[in-house]
Computed example of a mutant assay.
Amino acid sequence: MSTPATDYRFDRDQSGHSGPVTPERRDLHFLPPGDRICDWHTAGPNVTQFMNALSLLFPAGERMFIDAVRSYRDDIPDPDLKKAATAFIGQEAMHSREHIEYNQLMTDAGLPADKLDKFTWGLLDVLKRNTPRSTPLAATIALEHYTALMGDMLLRHPEQLAGSQADYERMWRWHALEEIEHKAVAYDVYEKCIGRGPRNWLERSGAMIIATGIFWPVVFSFYWQMSRADPQCRAQGLRGHLRMINFNFGKPGYLRRLMPEFLGYFKYSFHPWQQNNAHLLAELDELVDEAEAAYATRH
Rank of each mutant, 00 (worst) to 15 (best):
T107P: 12
V21E: 11
F50E: 06
H271C: 14
T86I: 01
A296T: 04
T42A: 14
K82F: 02
S134W: 15
W172T: 05
F220I: 10
G90K: 13
T131N: 11
M51N: 04
F215T: 14
L31N: 14
A60C: 04
V189D: 06
R196H: 08
S269G: 08
P198L: 04
G90A: 09
E261C: 15
V219A: 04
V185H: 05
H279E: 05
E62T: 13
H145G: 01
L155Q: 00
K183L: 05
S164F: 13
E261L: 12
R239I: 13
E292Y: 03
L31Q: 15
E159I: 10
Y146F: 03
Y295L: 15
D117S: 10
A207Q: 13
D67I: 14
T48I: 02
M150R: 07
F247L: 06
M64F: 08
Q165T: 11
T86E: 13
G44W: 05
R9P: 01
F30Y: 05
D13V: 10
R25V: 01
W174V: 04
F30K: 00
L161W: 05
F247K: 03
I209C: 14
Y254S: 07
L28M: 10
Q49H: 05
Q165N: 10
E283C: 03
K183V: 00
F270L: 08
A142S: 08
F215A: 12
L284I: 12
G61D: 00
D152W: 15
I245D: 05
R196S: 05
A93Q: 02
H271I: 12
K251R: 12
R243I: 13
A142D: 08
D11E: 03
D230Y: 08
T3G: 11
H175T: 02
I100H: 13
H41Q: 05
P252E: 02
I141S: 01
C193H: 06
P158Y: 14
R12E: 12
N277L: 09
I37M: 06
F220M: 07
